[in-house]
């Protein structure tokens, strides 16, 4: 086995292990908790999002595609293309989610102005 194959195997196993750990831990039941303390009026806190992690992974895959460039090719397409798709896809999803949140909070402010 070449160096590179061993390397890919190690990385692949590590990714599967980490994903498995995340899956196992995140499937556990959460404790019931009293409602989170509410912010004062007018303070808007955005909800959590998977997109930063996903985008970072997409960027890393795209980068890895370039770093592991086979001879003569522009990049390792097996890594670069999925990376690019994930990257662009998460950017679109991000913009959509951000737009939706902005409009939700804007409408609240518009109602406020109208309600006076």
């Amino acid at each position: 086995m070449t160096d590179a194959t061993v390397g890919y195997l190690v990385i692949g196993i590590a990714i599967v292990f980490v994903l498995g750990l995340v899956f196992a831990l995140s499937s556990r039941e959460g404790r019931l908790q009293q409602a989170r303390p509410t912010p004062p009026p007018g303070v808007h806190l955005p909800s959590g999002s998977f997109l930063p992690v996903v985008l970072a992974i997409g960027a890393a895959l795209l980068g890895a595609g370039f770093a592991f460039r086979p001879q003569g090719a522009i990049a390792n397409l097996f890594l670069a293309v999925p990376g690019f798709v994930v990257l662009v896809g998460s950017i679109f999803a991000w913009v959509r989610a951000a737009g939706r949140e902005w409009r939700e909070s804007e409408h609240a402010a518009d109602d406020d102005a109208a309600g006076h």
Binding site: P40, P41, G42, V43, A109, D112, A113
Partner: peptide
């Protein structure tokens, strides 16, 4: 001091 209302 209370935090200011939104929009201001």
């Amino acid at each position: 001091v209370e935090l200011p209302p939104p929009g201001r």
